[in-house]
């Protein structure tokens, strides 16, 4: 697999898995308004994943669904950050906030890429992510003084750093007012046990009838 396909899969997997995690709030979010918002965000993230998988699939000679569902868990390239099972609002908002800020840094870099196709897609994705950032920043501001939210941000910070290449990390730290130096990033490459569990649920129907059309 070439570097471009590896890069596309890393971002697509991040978007798919974070979108999957956002969907876990469907039906049980703290307010009905947030329930609707999280469904929107999940749809956007999964839509972005699909667009990225389509680019990768053109390189790899398969299709977006095969990439999203038919790989083994250890073939996924997502960061441990998106895998974590965090079904409480403080951690969920902390991850949404840090994820969107990190994603912005990553998309900014991709928009400047020499790869015109990827740069174009990054610009398109960023137009939707702008709304996710507004949503996340609004929540981060509302919960700023809640100790459990601040603790969740601190706890997730090493994971958020690990989502980005080292050269992009100082920009993320600047944006969120945290430090790179004193933190050991939790890097992409190793997976958490939560991914295998998620994968098993996510692919359950598809694995029940390999090759079937749904």
């Amino acid at each position: 697999m070439n570097a471009r396909a590896r890069l596309l899969l890393a971002i697509a997997d991040d978007e798919l898995i974070v979108g999957w995690r956002d969907s876990e709030w469907t039906g049980i979010a703290p307010t009905l308004e947030e329930d609707v918002a999280f469904s929107s965000i999940a749809q956007n993230e999964i839509g972005h994943a699909r667009a990225l998988y389509q680019l990768a699939a053109a390189e790899l000679g398969n299709d977006a669904d095969a990439l999203a569902f038919d790989r083994a868990p250890d073939e996924y390239r997502c960061a441990p950050f998106v895998e974590l099972h965090l079904l409480d609002w403080a951690h969920t908002i902390a991850r949404r906030y840090l994820y969107e800020e990190a994603d912005r840094v990553r998309l900014d870099a991709l928009r400047r890429s020499d790869d015109a196709e990827l740069a174009g897609l990054a610009a398109k994705i960023d137009r939707e992510e702008a709304y996710h950032r507004m949503h996340a920043e609004m929540w981060a501001a509302r919960l700023r003084d809640e100790p459990r939210f601040r603790a969740a941000v601190d706890e997730l910070w090493p994971y958020a750093l690990g989502m980005l290449e080292p050269e992009l990390r100082p920009e993320l730290a600047r944006r969120v007012g945290l430090s790179v130096e004193s933190t050991q990033a939790i890097e992409r490459g190793e997976h958490t046990p939560e991914l295998a569990e998620l994968w098993s649920t996510m692919t359950e129907v598809r694995r029940s009838a390999p090759g079937a059309a749904w």
Binding site: W20, S23, T26, S39
Partner: peptide
């Protein structure tokens, strides 16, 4: 909700998420 998480294709996942989102909006 359980089946959004298990939907067998990206298209089905998106469609089911949108449908369930409508239901919450109706509520």
């Amino acid at each position: 909700r359980e089946w959004i998480l298990k939907a067998p294709t990206l298209q089905r996942k998106l469609a089911l998420t949108a449908k369930v989102q409508d239901e919450v909006g109706h509520a």
